[in-house]
Design a protein around this nucleic acid. Structure first.
Lengths: 339, 339
DNA sequence: TCTTGAAATGTAACCGGTTCCATTAAAGGC
DNA sequence: GCCTTTAATGGAACCGGTTACATTTCAAGA
């Protein structure tokens, strides 16, 4: 029944209720010093006029948006979802809303980094797996808008990180300790415009193998497009080598699952003939009894959100680097090498 | 180097550049009537002071947020991602930003429906797969904020829908035409607080079977939690029946893939011994050569976003219902029944 | 009864932009 | 050279809230 935008404002309410706009505002923000009778009268008027305060005006007046933004790539990947849940859990009980900005291509990242602090209307920012350049980091740290990095780091900012190098070591060490010496590493492309976690894990893998006196075998390192399907193809290649590996360290659970998919097709029993270890501990890993490195994804979301809230709450916080824990979860896809 | 929020405003710029704030505003919005010399002087000052206009103030002044919101459940599912891409494609070339609100549980839906029109700051809304109640629909249609429904419908609103009943018929009809009579339907829970697409597809399936004179066999209908993993379990149950089906219609590609996963384990060849048809045509379906019903997910996003932009552009549009097309894609997982 | 102070309310400035309208400066017409 | 137009610019109101401060109300204390 409404015609063209006859928006009711706080002044309309004030007029109808026969009070001042200040009083209406007080009622809306349930300030304590409004007489009960007045309060009721104002509420009645608000209902009657079907009045809704304009959030934009409010934001301008109080100088805050009560919104925090999160920029992250690959929103569809299970590991990112897991972190997101951690963030949401914390924010749900705060006064802040969460707005998600998805980055699929590097250009988007730069566009967001450039604009968000200005064009977007957020009080704080979480940036996941997207390492800023020095210049961008400077912008963030000198900006009015506090920023917390999750899963990437920069000396000028607050960061929540996992030690991917150590994670790579842990996975490789587990396989070595089981007696394996033909250990392959199956991964996303190591060179990426996003956070090079896979590269660190790779370095950890190389390190442990070297320590164990296992010569580097380039054929055992295979990289390719992310995703379960592609992992299958890569796994097939590895397992068809003349001298196939007896263990595969996949840089993500999703890829490890791809390996589990194809092994039966090739008549390879897991874990008897092939040990497989993943990384992340996503829900599907539990279901498939996949041995993996739990990198506390959920917790990284929780910690990041909490840190941002602290800063927004006024806590003075210098740049820092906070680690989430790593845990080797031994399940059913790894076993001692049979001679 | 900055201390506590010494935010530079348009007035600071005006003062430094020795012009009026009106002129600065004109420069910012590159209005035509500013002399070239003045324009340069103002830009120089803007750079010098490192000034960034406050978007909130601008929004308040112009009365628009230049943001559109999308509410959708299961943001992690491939089918929803596909729609989202369609939306983003259209919005990318518009002046609007997209903000995503994810709904995982029904309560969130109601909270968003209640608040968004008021608390949130968007110019328009897209609602995906979340049918509003009559009351909510009334609120939307009488609200200042135009709303378009995608994948659900209501007589009072603009809707983009797919004919799930017909889709169910198409899938079932395909199998019947291939000679199958033992046709199972594997699905998410039919009762859902979200859009009951699966129920419509189910109805279509029942209808076609009845027309073909195939008696209803309750054992052949199995419902359960969504997801590939759960689909495997359900598929196993179906295929272990005393008189197993020769064809399975899965209500989503993800579930169909689950069926493809387990069939080999049970020694069942596809499509020779078992025909499988999915629904959605997600990217993985292409890769796995899955026969499926393409419900133009991407296109539904495109159409929905376009319609919303039209309305925001001033087009008067009465409630309507626009269908996206359905196509049976015959690939390699369905085949004639062998006697 | 008159103070006095707390409680309740009102006034008006402010947040940081946009834009209508008035004013001034420059250019064109005769 | 003067008047009319047009181009540039400035002044100030406005968007719709919040809030510091001033003012009024009213009950308690002297």
């Amino acid at each position: 029944m409404k015609n063209t935008t006859p928006t009711t404002t706080i002044r309309d309410v004030a007029k109808h209720a026969n009070v001042s706009i200040a009083t209406v505002s007080r009622v809306l923000n349930d300030s304590s010093d409004v007489k009960e009778g007045t309060r009721e009268k104002v509420w009645a008027t608000i209902e009657e006029l079907n009045y809704t305060p304009n959030p934009i005006a409010r934001q301008l007046a109080i100088g805050r948006t009560l919104t925090i933004g999160i920029i992250q790539p690959y929103i569809t990947l299970p590991s990112y979802i897991e972190r997101l849940r951690g963030v949401q859990q914390i924010l749900a009980s705060s006064e802040y809303d969460l707005v998600i900005f998805n980055v699929d291509i590097p250009e988007q990242k730069d566009a967001y980094f450039r604009d968000l602090s200005r064009k977007m209307r957020v009080d704080g920012m979480l940036i996941v797996s997207l390492p800023p350049t020095d210049e961008q980091a400077d912008n963030f740290s000198s900006s009015r808008i506090p920023t917390v990095l999750i899963d990437s780091d920069h000396p000028k900012l607050c960061c929540i990180v996992a030690d991917d190098l150590e994670g790579g070591r842990m996975a490789a060490r587990h396989l070595v300790e089981l007696g394996h010496r033909k250990i392959a590493y199956l991964t996303d492309y190591l060179e990426t415009p996003f956070h090079p976690a896979m590269k660190f894990r790779y370095a950890g893998y190389r390190e442990v193998l070297e320590e164990a006196g296992i010569p580097y075998q380039p054929d055992y390192v295979i990289e390719g497009e992310r995703g379960r399907i592609n992992a299958r193809v890569m796994a097939k290649r590895l397992l068809s080598l003349d001298d196939p590996p007896t263990a595969i360290f996949a840089s993500s659970d999703t890829q490890a699952l791809g390996v589990l998919d194809v092994a039966p097709e090739l008549g390879i029993k897991i874990p008897e003939r092939l040990s497989v270890i993943g990384y992340d501990n996503i829900p599907d890993a539990v279901y498939n009894n996949l041995t993996t490195i739990d990198q506390s994804l959920h917790d990284s979301g929780v910690k990041g959100a909490q840190m941002l809230l602290d800063v927004l709450g006024g806590l003075k916080m210098p740049p820092c680097k906070k680690y989430v824990s790593l845990n080797l979860l031994k399940r059913k896809t790894t076993a001692p090498l049979l001679y």
